[in-house]
Design a protein around this nucleic acid. Structure first.
Lengths: 117, 117
DNA sequence: GTTTTCTATAACCATCACGTTACATAAAGA
DNA sequence: TCTTTATGTAACGTGATGGTTATAGAAAAC
């Protein structure tokens, strides 16, 4: 996944209103009116959030009569998880032990009774 | 994990320079000078990025003589992954089929030869 | 065609984000 | 103490972000 795309996805996720919108859309598709009812902000504000989510590829929209249904597109979330997975080793218990080992090796290989003499 | 914390973590990850800093720190701890050498920007700019990363809990810093070493703290990355994991079902193949099933159920339970009569 | 309903856009404002340069500060060393 | 090295902070410019109200546009209903 490109840096540009990661900028958009993580940027979209950096706002709690947009995360709440995604959580709502995970239950079921919704139109702008439905989503606006969830928050204490105006409809244009919600429309702007949807635009951000759409540009990040996190939602798609299609007309259904007079209204436009927003639909969760989880693929970018998978990609973002993939990026984070590269760091998985750094928060596992096994890595914690490996890390300590490497730190000790930075001071030179331990030798029996070596450093205190 | 709180919304406030997720705001900080995803916000920190929304910048490619900061992601590159994390990637570098995954190899080894580094000071501000080391990191500045990686980019075409000033040292104060890098210091600001480190401040953002520190407030998100993604790095820790401790003095080592005249310099301050930055150290990757992966725990928030784990938390962010945890949030994303809630959506894992939505990008799996099995969910895609479940989704189609549920959509068809929204139109009412299918009955043998029911709707075309 | 006119109205109604739902949504997008325009214009505006306040604040934040990200970069700069200049300068202040902290620790080490002559 | 004075200097050197490494880093943080202040002040600033500029563009993005997140909200508002007012208005425009698109599809359905009458």
């Amino acid at each position: 996944m490109s840096d540009d795309q990661l900028d958009l996805v993580f940027g979209a996720l950096a706002d709690r209103t947009r995360r709440a919108i995604l959580a709502r859309l995970a239950r079921q598709d919704a139109n702008v009116g439905d989503l606006t009812a969830l928050f204490t902000m105006s409809q244009p504000a919600v429309s702007k959030h949807l635009k951000v989510l759409e540009q990040a590829g996190l939602i798609s929209r299609n007309r259904q009569g007079t209204m436009r249904l927003s639909h969760l597109e989880a693929a970018p979330l998978k990609d973002a998880t993939g990026w984070l997975a590269d760091y998985r080793a750094y928060w596992t218990e096994s890595y914690a032990r490996l890390d300590e080992l490497l730190d000790s090796l930075d001071d030179g290989p331990p030798q029996p009774g070596g450093e205190s003499s």
